[in-house]
Design a protein around this nucleic acid. Sequence first.
DNA 1: TCCAGTGATTGAATCGATTCATTAATGAAT
DNA 2: ATTCATTAATGAATCGATTCAATCACTGGA
Lengths: 338, 338
Amino acid sequence: MATGTGAKLTDVAALAGVSVGTVSNVLNRPEQVSDEKKTRVLAAIEQLGFVRNESARSLRSGSTTSLGMLVLDVRNPFFTDVAMGAENVAEAHGHSLILANSAEDTNRERAYLDLFEQQRVQGVLITPVGQVLDRLETMRQRGIPSILVDRLASRDQFCSVSVDDVAGGRTALAHLLEAGSVNPAFVGGPFTLQQVEDRHRGAAEEAERAGIALQLFETPDLKFERGRKVGELISNLQPAKRPDAVFAANDQLALGLLQSFAANGLRVPEDMLLVGFDDIDFASQSSIPLTSISQPRQLIGERAAQLLFEEIANEANHVHSQIVFTPTLIARRSTRRG
Amino acid sequence: MATGTGAKLTDVAALAGVSVGTVSNVLNRPEQVSDEKKTRVLAAIEQLGFVRNESARSLRSGSTTSLGMLVLDVRNPFFTDVAMGAENVAEAHGHSLILANSAEDTNRERAYLDLFEQQRVQGVLITPVGQVLDRLETMRQRGIPSILVDRLASRDQFCSVSVDDVAGGRTALAHLLEAGSVNPAFVGGPFTLQQVEDRHRGAAEEAERAGIALQLFETPDLKFERGRKVGELISNLQPAKRPDAVFAANDQLALGLLQSFAANGLRVPEDMLLVGFDDIDFASQSSIPLTSISQPRQLIGERAAQLLFEEIANEANHVHSQIVFTPTLIARRSTRRG
DNA sequence: TCCAGTGATTGAATCGATTCATTAATGAAT
DNA sequence: ATTCATTAATGAATCGATTCAATCACTGGA
C-alpha cells in the first residue's frame, strides 16, 4: 500500500480521465466544473489519497494562506489567550496561524522573522523584543505587513492593539481608596518596562487627585519570588509606617505578596488590601481570591488579526490605526472587607 | 526602494556576475565556493535584500525543514512546557516547530493534520483527541512519521513519550501515609480519563499494601471550581468520617480544595494534608504551598522530538519505543506538619 | 609537453500545482 | 442555416530554487 512518494495532480487527472486544469479547478473553483467530472475527480483523489503540495501551490500562485505570530513567551497565559483569539479570526478567514516563541531572545526573534519571510506568510502579529521596527518596515515594503500586539506603536507606520495601562493604574488605585485605604503603596518594576511605568503613573495620578501620598516599592522584576521578598519587607515595617493597601504591577507579584503576608500573620483584606494586574486564572483561585485588573486578552488577538487582514486586503492605501482597550477591574475578596 | 516583488536568485546571480548554481551553492554548500565569489554573492544578496523562497526550495528539494506539533490545549502550561522542550531540540537540528492547537476539537485536529500534510512537514508530535491512529499510520506510510506525546501508544506502530501515572499515584499516597494520615481520600474523575484511572489505581494499591482504606470522591471533571465544591462537601462531614488527607488528581482540583478548606476553617496541613498532581507553577505560589507530583515536562518534549528525528533519519528500519517517565514528588507546606 | 586528477563553476532540466489563452460544445437569436 | 454568447475543458507555460552532468581551470607528475 505504501506508495512511496504520494500521488500528484497529474496522477489524479490520469485516473479521472480529465486534464490537470480540471483537477485544479475542482480544487479551487469547483463551481466551474460539471457535476459529472467533479465526482470523478473527487473519487480519484480519494482513491489515490492525493494531498495537494502546498509548496507547489504557493510557489505558482505567489501567495500563502498563513499568518505568523511571534510572542514573547508562550508559557505566559496572556499570550496564549491572545493567540487563541487571533487563531479564531485566522481560521474564519481560511488562514492558519503559525505560532512561534521568541522567548524574549532577540536572536530567536530574528530567526523566526527570517522564517516567516522565507515562508512568505501573508502577515505577522508580533510583540517585539528588540529593535525590530526597521526590519518590520522593510518587510512591509516587501509585502508582508505586521501588527504590533500589546505594544502601542511609537511610529504611525504600524497598526497596534494594546491596553491603556495608565487607565488601569487609575482604576486600581481608585478602588483601593474607595475600599478605605489611606496609605496605599505601589509595588513593581523595573520602570524601563513601559507597562510598569504606565501602571504606576495612573496610580500616582489618582492618588494625587485624592490628595494622598503613594508609597513606592520598586522591584527589579515582576516574578512571584520577588513578591515574596517585598512582602517580607513590608510585613516587618512598623505598623505606623506600613501601607494599608498594595497595588502590585502584576498578579505574579501580588500572589507572592499574598503568600508572605499570610506567612507573617498579616490578614488580607482585614489588615491589608491587595490589587493585582492581568487577572490570570490563578488570581481567582488563590486561597484569598485576588482583586485584579483584567485585560480583554482574547479580544486583543481577534482585533489584531482583523486589522492584519484589513491591511492585507488593501495594502496600498491602508490607514494605520491604534486600538487601545481600557482594562476593567474585577473585585474579589482581597479588597472586600467585612 | 519598494521593489514590489522581491529579488530572486537569478537577480542575485546577475548582479554578482555568477551563475544561479553558484548562488545556490553559497546558500547550501558554502564550502564548495571560492572565497572571492562567495563574498561577491553575499554582497549581492545584501544589496538586493534577497530572501530565499521556501516554497520553491522545498518543492524542488522535496523536503521541508519543519515539524508539526498538535497539542490539546495551548493554554495549559503543561503543553507549552512540553512544546518548549521540543522546540529546543528542533532548533538544535536546524528545524522549526509549527505549534497548533486542537483545543480538544476533533475537527480542528483533522484540519491541522491536513495542513501539516499539505505543508509536507517532516514529522508530527501529537497528543491525539479523536480516533486518529489510522490517519497517523496512513501519514507515516506517506513519509510523515509521528510520535505520541503524553499518551502511551496502545499499538506498537508508534513511539510515545508519557508519564507513569500509576507510580505517581503510589508515590503520592505513600507520602501521605508517611506524613501521618490514617484516613486518606482520593478526589478526581472522570475515570474514563486514563490519567485519572491510573493515578487512582496507584494510590489504591499503595493504600492496600499498608492495610488502610482509601476513600473516593469521584468528580465529573478536574477543574478548580469542582475542587471548591468537593472541598465544601468534605469540610462539612463529621470530623470522625472526614478524611485527614486528600490526594487530588490534579493541581487545579487541589487548589480548589485548598481554597474551600481555608474558607471553612479547615487548616492545611494541621487538620488536613493535601497533595496535587502536575506541579504547575501555582502549586508553589499558593498561600499554602502545595505538595505535588511533578512531571518532567520539558524533558518529555525533548525526548519526543529526539525520537521523531531518529525515525525521520531512519524511516526504513526504525524500531518504535515507548518512553515512560516516573514522576517525582515535590514536598511542600501542605503536607508538612509542625 | 601532455595527461590525469582535483576542485570550482555552469546552466538546462526539474519539482508539482496554477494560470490563462485557446478550443470545443451547446444553446439562443436572427 | 448562420452567427453570437456562454460555459466547460484543455494543456503548455510558469513560479523560483535546486540538482547534477558537463565543462573549465589549474596543478603536479610523467
